[in-house]
Design a protein around this nucleic acid. Structure first.
Lengths: 203, 203
DNA sequence: GGTGTGAGTGAGTGCATACTCACACCTATG
DNA sequence: CATAGGTGTGAGTATGCACTCACTCACACC
């Protein structure tokens, strides 16, 4: 969309150590911001800490992203992209192996939030601030749209089935947020047991 | 649990206008805090505003709740209690009318988050800060335990059915957070359409 | 060598916020 | 009446934060 500058990037691959392009720095900054926002949430995450982790000054952070909100939106978008990609890969692999893609993506989601807790936490924080931050809300809606399209295309499931699939995804998120798997009570066991097919075929 | 003071409350019902007991004030304070936390989340909600809404000084707020965190936990607990009560009432009413309690509670939940958006938002914010705030996490776990017990007792559903029920509840939360009902795209329609029984009986 | 442009920063500014402290005011009881 | 203890506050303090500004430095091109 945005007409990327046709300037050659120089120091990216090798050679003279020193300045990066703004675009590269922006990407590094987003990666550095993800764990901070994931751990503390939007309001409690200080831009100073993000800048420090990225290895740049806070002043430069604000040149790359004019407001903290814009940085956060970029973080949310990147997290969503990562999620969708991971699921797509899982679905493709499942198709090759002849496994039901719906099941594969269900499992892939479980693995995803299990291994990459940060993505899940970003989702959670983004949901929470969505009502108050329209750009974040938009990013979340786009994320759901992409995920739904992917699920629909790969599984060919009905609307009801996809709703089920998403519902269980949301439950996984919440249970992970409160670390329900550490609790040894009936409710926790029941609500975190995803052994049973979480994408039941009804046909 | 805590040995409540057995002192008689005096100015509560009628008579001499003036001071309230600390317990009464605490309750008022929680009620005043709910909309503020709901709208802004934990970190962005200023105690000054909460105090102002409650009609007391900020200094007194901090006498009633030594830390903001403790106030927030009280808010979360009260929200949970309200939710559980509402659902219980819906279930009882359903029993009298011979309706399936599971369905009734499903509908009751939908109505609840539709009419009392604040409760939903509190849940969302509490989930988001749970990983970083153990007391909030505990409150959330207790909330799920109560809700699960209620659902189990009233519907007699299996673990799988209850898991389904919770999963759809979580989906409602998230869709409400991003106001998906305002969106006119397939994914939004599919994920917000709860006409079909969201508590399918499988037996 | 000179010059223009973009990368990058040290050192702030101003404001909001959680929490404190010394004090005033009710009111129930002896 | 005195006084003890609970209710309530005005006026702070200390800190942390988003964001800014004036400035330096690296590099590409002439």
């Amino acid at each position: 969309m945005v007409p990327v500058s046709d300037k050659v990037k120089k120091a990216s691959s090798a050679g003279s150590r020193s300045l990066s392009t703004a675009e590269e720095r922006r990407e590094e900054l987003i990666d550095a911001a993800i764990p901070v926002f994931a751990e503390k949430g939007y309001h409690a995450a200080p831009t100073t800490e993000i800048a420090k982790r990225a290895g740049i000054s806070q002043a430069y952070l604000f040149r790359l992203f004019p407001t903290k909100e814009e940085l956060f939106v970029a973080v949310v978008e990147k997290s969503c992209r990562r999620m969708v990609e991971t699921m797509a890969v899982a679905a493709s692999q499942a198709e090759k192996e002849g496994v039901e893609p719906g099941d594969a993506m269900g499992l892939a989601y479980g693995d995803l939030v299990g291994s990459d807790r940060e993505l899940l936490l970003i989702q959670l924080h983004a949901q929470a601030v969505s009502p108050a931050m329209p750009p974040v809300r938009k990013a979340m809606r786009d994320c759901f749209a992409d995920l739904y399209a992917l699920g629909s295309e790969r599984t060919g499931g009905t609307a009801d089935e996809l709703q089920n699939w998403f519902a269980h995804g949301m439950l996984i998120n919440v249970m992970t947020a409160i670390s329900a798997e550490e609790v040894n009570e009936p409710w926790a066991v029941a609500l975190t047991d995803f052994e049973g097919d979480c994408f039941p075929r009804e046909s």
